[in-house]
Amino acid sequence: MQKDQLLTRRRALLTGAAALGAAGVAAALVPGTGNRAAPPAPPAPGAQAARRPLKPSEYRLRPLTGYGPPSATGSTPVRTEPLLRMSGRGRTMVLTFDDGPDPRYTTPILDTLARYEVRAMFFVCGEMAAENPDLLARMADEGHVVGNHTWSHPLLTRLGRRRIRLEMERTCDIIEKAHGERPQWFRAPYGAWNRAAFQLGAELGMEPLAWTVDTLDWTTPGTATIVDRVEDGAAPGVVVLSHDAGGDRSQSVRALRAYLPGLLDSGYHISVPRRQYA
């Protein structure tokens, strides 16, 4: 199959998958902050948490306060805060995975998502994507959304505009080559955003997405602890942050296998967001 034909097939699959999930996915996200807090002391790993019905509290169901209308650059707005949760009705959640792809962890995560016919978002680093283009091709074929997480995972607040643009553009290019389309979403490493990141992301056609629930899985707190954090934070519209690379992510793999069926049994619809802007 020629390259152009392969990219066309992947674009068609993505378009069809988005249409199938549109009914259960909100058309907008709510802005807010998503900076990573200092890691707490990791608790000792324990036995896997027992699955239980999830009952989101009234507090977690409150919509977050917006930050006013964004200014527009072309068709993508320039925001002053990242989007961090879906708005609208329905028990819909978004699962996101950062820093990959890494065959050791991304592959079993994709296997679990496929088993339950669930789509997720993967914010990939360009240097990892360049080494594993087959995994991005699989994400495209299975309807997952791939976002830009820079090329080398730097702290953007310490970089100049030229370096930030290079980090973003190189990653956009490798995603388009391997996934079949350019990314529409961007996430700053460490949740460290600045004006240049918002402006350059918008110029490249990307919306900034943070998160609502941080599993802190990068601290390797134990599988049961990760499961508890997802289940305790579950609520309509939340965006869950996990990782599929950047260290030993075997706990994250096991946790997904444990909490995903519980979320689905509790009536949550796990899907991906739609863009408000073309």
Rank of each mutant, 00 (worst) to 15 (best):
S57G: 10
I270Y: 07
L155F: 15
D244S: 15
D217Y: 13
Y259K: 05
S252H: 14
E181L: 08
D102R: 15
V145P: 05
T215N: 09
G88A: 05
V30I: 07
P82D: 02
L95H: 05
H243P: 09
L13A: 10
T33G: 12
R162S: 08
P31D: 01
G34K: 02
P70M: 05
R257H: 08
H153P: 11
R182H: 11
S57Y: 05
R115W: 10
T106H: 02
L13Q: 12
R275T: 01
P31Q: 00
G222V: 09
Q251M: 13
A114E: 13
R89N: 00
Q199K: 12
V227D: 02
R249Q: 13
N194G: 09
A137R: 05
T112L: 14
F186S: 11
Y259F: 11
R52M: 03
V240L: 07
P63N: 04
R91T: 05
R89A: 00
T73Q: 15
A18Q: 10
T73R: 15
A38Q: 10
G126S: 14
P69M: 05
R60I: 13
E176S: 14
R274A: 02
A49L: 12
K3C: 08
A224D: 03
I226W: 10
Q184R: 15
R257M: 12
G160H: 07
C125Q: 15
A49H: 11
A202D: 01
L264A: 04
V25G: 15
E181R: 15
W185N: 01
A137D: 08
A19F: 09
W211M: 03
G205I: 02
L83I: 01
T80K: 05
E207W: 06
W193A: 05
P154L: 03
P31K: 01
T107M: 08
T65M: 06
G147R: 00
L7W: 01
P53A: 01
G88D: 01
A47E: 09
T150D: 06
G180E: 02
T220E: 14
G237K: 02
G246L: 04
R158D: 10
L241N: 11
E142V: 07
R170H: 12
D102H: 14
A22F: 02
E169I: 11
L7Q: 03
T92C: 00
T212W: 02
P101D: 07
F123S: 06
G237T: 02
L263Y: 13
T157P: 06
L156Y: 04
G143H: 06
L260W: 04
P69A: 14
G126I: 07
D265R: 11
S271R: 03
P273F: 00
I270R: 09
D248W: 14
D265L: 05
D4R: 15
Y116A: 04
E81P: 04
R254I: 12
R158Q: 07
G201V: 04
L54P: 09
R170Q: 14
T80V: 08
G147F: 04
